[in-house]
Design a protein around this nucleic acid. Sequence first.
DNA 1: CTGTTAGCGCATTCAT
DNA 2: ATGAATGCGCTAACAG
Lengths: 339, 339
Amino acid sequence: MRARLPDRKSRVTVTEVAAACGVSPATVSRIMRGQTVVAEPTRERVMATVRALGYVPNRIAGSLASMDTRLIGVVIPSLHNIVFPEVLRGVHAGLEGTGYQAVISVTDYDPDREEAAVRNLLAWQPAALLLAGFDHTDATRRMLGQSAARVVEMMDLDQIPFDVAVGLSHHRAGVETGRHLIAKGYRRFGYVGHDWHTDLRAKRRFDGLMQALTEAGLPLVAEARCDGPSSLAEGRRQTARLRASAPEVDVAVYSNDDMAVGGVFHCMAAGITLPQDFAIFGFNGLEIGRDLPQPLSTLRSNRFRIGRDSVGVVMACAKRPSEPQIIDTGFEVFAGETA
Amino acid sequence: MRARLPDRKSRVTVTEVAAACGVSPATVSRIMRGQTVVAEPTRERVMATVRALGYVPNRIAGSLASMDTRLIGVVIPSLHNIVFPEVLRGVHAGLEGTGYQAVISVTDYDPDREEAAVRNLLAWQPAALLLAGFDHTDATRRMLGQSAARVVEMMDLDQIPFDVAVGLSHHRAGVETGRHLIAKGYRRFGYVGHDWHTDLRAKRRFDGLMQALTEAGLPLVAEARCDGPSSLAEGRRQTARLRASAPEVDVAVYSNDDMAVGGVFHCMAAGITLPQDFAIFGFNGLEIGRDLPQPLSTLRSNRFRIGRDSVGVVMACAKRPSEPQIIDTGFEVFAGETA
DNA sequence: CTGTTAGCGCATTCAT
DNA sequence: ATGAATGCGCTAACAG
């Protein structure tokens, strides 16, 4: 027999509530979940006791008994800019009122850390796992295969998903960017970007851009890329480099809005007039770009919608579909005034 | 007897692993937790089986048995700007390698939604709850009192915490802002702000500023405030209003960097030279301010550190201290070039 | 060092 | 409409 129980987190249990008002634990349990029909007087009596004792049902025990956790694992690459928080905002909007909770992990764009995160999260038997992109280790894929959780690969549509993908085609986004700018009359293209090893979607957009240029018989005149993650500071620095090395470039496509706004700041400081002297086009459609003195020309990805719809799809059905499913949240050109 | 078991999320259990390699479940459990000493040959044999079967321990069951969940509840007001994601970043940095997971809820600055979030999170028996500020409902306070979880009130130090507070004194931040600007020679102060009903810390900074002005015998010449949350767009709008109504103001203190950067954008667009014609001082020290063509003058709050240290304190000790504890993560003036 | 035993708190039968 | 019995998968105490 156990000598001493460890301190309980919640003092009150169903059994105690039941005892306190002369019903069985099963009745209390039923009332707490509002499921089956219970006589109104009983219900009221029990609820009074619940309030009096401050009873909070233990979901750990409940989940074990019912084999249903109401937990959603969310694995995101980064919290360094506003992009993934906006996805999270969508996730929370989708979760609102469902009784599900989000358990969050951050990978810093490292597949091995993603693997660790997935392992830890799966141990909580989540109803679903929301990941970013398709770049997982083999072990991660195996674990996902063994689990019964729904798996949403967010942000991206350019590969066949494991279960469901919710996002946009970054390749097509790149193509549309190129076509849009060519249609506006730009011919001497430059590219300003950040690390492709971690941010594969940025690379995919670049490839799309190149496809559009090739279709139009145009070269990429120059590019300036840094090794690290995107930032305003790198956007400024790489823009300076690009301008110094290739002053003939009339429009630069940026890997994202952080880099692009950095570019705008460089131009402000250097007295370069946008878009006459030089044009800038971003990606994402962040608030910061919209509220610039000259609004940033960019492509809006719908990050809130990605998060919300990802939750929506797993709430709609607890089982994986026989065919991988694809939900396109789209993108739109935001004209702005910098290109 | 139960007719039919519901589908299990994880097919493999300790019992099955144990059976598969001829040891007892307890031994498998011990090995999985790496706690007590187990003979090396046994360990290897079991681990081989674990890998072969793809066994993932069920933490729901584990938590119930050990009454220790390794879950940390985090309740944040908003994901609309980068401030709380930076706190979350700190939280995840602090959690790294501890085996604890963060369960997140968002309140949109609504105490009633905070109450609901706390109720839902406490049901998971978390080891700790991380909240923002002191503005809780009575019911929330009662629930926190009943639970054994550590409670960290983040961001703020201006009241006596329930258990631990990690953050900075917003009143002192306001005072220091005032003194700093007075020392720089400014005399005609304005204030640009957003809604105080939701963001009580902004109000506290304002009060501190007023105290500094009063000490110096200076009036607040003008103020422009909006009802909604802070944003770049409102920063621009309210700055325009302030300038129109009180052109004599030589420095404006802003409720935060989002508003202040909006102010900088207004000045850029309106051809106002900073800081000669008009000076701007923010609060937070966001990346966006630092990388502006003219870096924003502001007060750095240490949001990453707040998150990391909040986790640190609950990892250090599982029990509430007898006396409320206060951890000051401080703030520093960032000189910048706009004031 | 390892096995046995007895729950953790709750949800779910099935019987009444 | 309600109660009694059973076990979810695991960990902790104890015995050996």
